[in-house]
Simulated assay, not measured.
Amino acid sequence: MNYSNTLQTPDSSKYVIDFSQIYTNISNACFHFASSFINLSRNMDELPDEELMLKYAAGNNRAFEILYTRHRGGLYRYLARQCRNNAIAEELFQDVWMNLVRTRERYTVKAKFTTFVYRMAHNKLIDHYRKQSKGVPASFDDEDCPDLDTIEDQASETPVEILEKEEKLARLKKMVNLLPDAQREAFLLREESGLKLEDIADITGVNVETAKSRLRYAVSKLKSALLSENLQTEARGEV
């Protein structure tokens, strides 16, 4: 039997590989993957601190990088201006972040992340003071704060808003360094870190009224010092 007439030769054109289509498909897949990765990174950057910390606790190191970038500047300035020693501030700064790394798996959202991390920084400062011969500064005692009724209500106006020139800001920083430690801490947490009174109270371990008193007393002292300096300048005829 002759099968030559019944067998059909396969149509080779059906088996030609369309490399151009494969390339297009791969390119599209890569584009969508890259877009998804970029969107994921963008979404991570937009997450609130508390969610980022939870992600870091679950093993996402990118979340830690974002948190560190957001808060390293303010946290370091807070420590540096409190202890007024860059070497000590650097050591305390590293201790805070290392403590956060070590305890990340136990993290739960009980307060804002800023409150959580600045509370750790405050505790590191207190530990540092206790190791010194002079001990914890007396200004951290609640009795240091005067009665609220004796202080002019200036909460709506801060020295930073009054001073517009860089040279005056430099003088303000010197005046801030002369404040009692607890008052300086309250002022820096409010002005440098933008924290609310409730957060400052939580961080420093006092009630809201005490935190408010420390802040207002610091503002009152700074304004008095600035006014006195301006009067002296005018008296010398430098204005």
Rank of each mutant, 00 (worst) to 15 (best):
N2Q: 04
Q8W: 01
Q8R: 12
K14P: 00
Y15R: 02
D18K: 02
F19S: 03
Q21P: 00
Q21N: 08
Y23S: 08
Y23L: 07
N25K: 11
N25A: 12
S27T: 15
N28L: 14
A29C: 06
C30Q: 12
A34K: 11
S35F: 09
S36M: 11
S36R: 11
M44F: 08
M44D: 11
L47M: 15
M53Q: 08
M53L: 11
K55Q: 12
Y56E: 04
A57K: 05
A58P: 00
G59R: 08
G59A: 09
E65S: 14
I66E: 07
Y68P: 00
T69E: 13
Y76S: 04
R77Y: 10
R77L: 15
L79M: 02
R81P: 00
I88Y: 03
I88R: 12
E90M: 10
E91W: 07
F93L: 03
Q94R: 09
D95E: 12
M98N: 15
M98G: 06
N99A: 10
V101I: 14
R104P: 00
T108E: 10
V109T: 13
A111M: 14
F113I: 07
Y118Q: 01
Y118P: 00
M120D: 07
H122V: 02
D127C: 09
Y129G: 04
S133K: 15
A138R: 07
D141Q: 03
D142Y: 04
D144P: 01
P146D: 01
D147L: 07
D149Q: 12
A155D: 10
P159T: 04
L163F: 13
K165E: 14
E166D: 14
E167V: 09
E167L: 09
K168W: 14
L189M: 08
E191K: 08
E209H: 10
T210F: 00
T210W: 03
A211K: 01
A211W: 01
S213Q: 07
L215G: 03
L215M: 09
K221Q: 11
L231H: 03
Q232Y: 03
Q232K: 13
E234V: 11
A235S: 10
G237N: 05
G237A: 06
